[in-house]
Nucleic acid binder design. Structure first.
Lengths: 141, 141
DNA sequence: GGCATGTTCAACCATCCGGTTGACTGATGG
DNA sequence: CCATCAGTCAACCGGATGGTTGAACATGCC
């Protein structure tokens, strides 16, 4: 009973993690993080053929990590972080045993939130036991 | 981008994401999340041979996701969340933070490393537009 | 010693993955 | 119209993966 055994979700996680398990594809995502790009421009910095990069892009599309928008003869690639959010939620479930606590990020967020007091008290999820959003010691003014 | 092109970290991310891209291995991790287990007990619920599961375990070990401790003739498997933490940090950067935030994070870390907590003057720190505002509903796998 | 238990090793097989090249379709524009 | 640019398709190749089986170590117990 501990396993919901949701095959759809499992398949999506398969696709997302498999797509992320390649430095070229992660680099593509990093590029698209800054701006939408055409396929040819995505392929430009890589030392491989265009079809190879196009394959990588199609892997990312099938994983739901990017969307493609064909306009004229160029097809634009655009990041779609929804699928990634689901996978990151899976990882957070493991982080519950011990807070993710990646160095600096938490303090960065604390700093940002300190200057901009987001109502995190109300947004504090009661379910996940203490990941972020708890009243962590904020060492920033 | 400020990508340092760290090949070691890239290889680690490769291994971790590739290890996660398999439902059997994710299930193994979920089992070990509750308790340490022997290899045979890990393999018990799966409908495949013991060597197959042992291979999956060795993939997880090589990815740094679990540790093995051979005591007597049974080898105990234990979750090791460090590697997962690094990968989840990578995903957090994409899934929940926007591009501007990455730059902000870089500046923040740079400033902190410099021991100089100064806010960038006039730089108009890009406040994270709804970082925690996302209705992040972490659910168990 | 002898035997059962826990785990790994070694071949072997089918399939997938990442890359190539070459031909192909389709929109742009002189 | 014809050349060119953007991108895909198809076939192919080498190597990694995921699974099997059968044998080989080890160790614990009688």
């Amino acid at each position: 009973m501990e396993t919901p055994a949701d095959p759809v979700r499992e398949a999506r996680l398969d696709a997302v993690f498999a797509a992320l398990a390649d430095p070229t594809r992660r680099a593509i995502l990093a590029m698209l993080l800054e701006d939408d790009m055409a396929v040819t421009d995505v392929a430009a910095p890589f030392d491989m053929s265009l079809p190879a990069v196009a394959k990588h892009i199609s892997v990312l599309v099938r994983a739901g990590l990017i969307r493609q928008d064909r306009r004229g003869r160029v097809t634009w690639c655009q990041l779609d972080p929804d699928a990634l959010r689901e996978a990151s939620g899976w990882m957070l479930a493991f982080g519950q045993i011990d807070a993710i606590d990646l160095d600096g990020l938490e303090r960065f967020l604390a700093a940002e939130l300190a200057g901009d007091m987001v109502a995190e008290a109300g947004g504090a999820a009661p379910g996940p036991p203490g990941y972020l959003g708890k009243d962590e010691e904020v060492s920033l003014p």
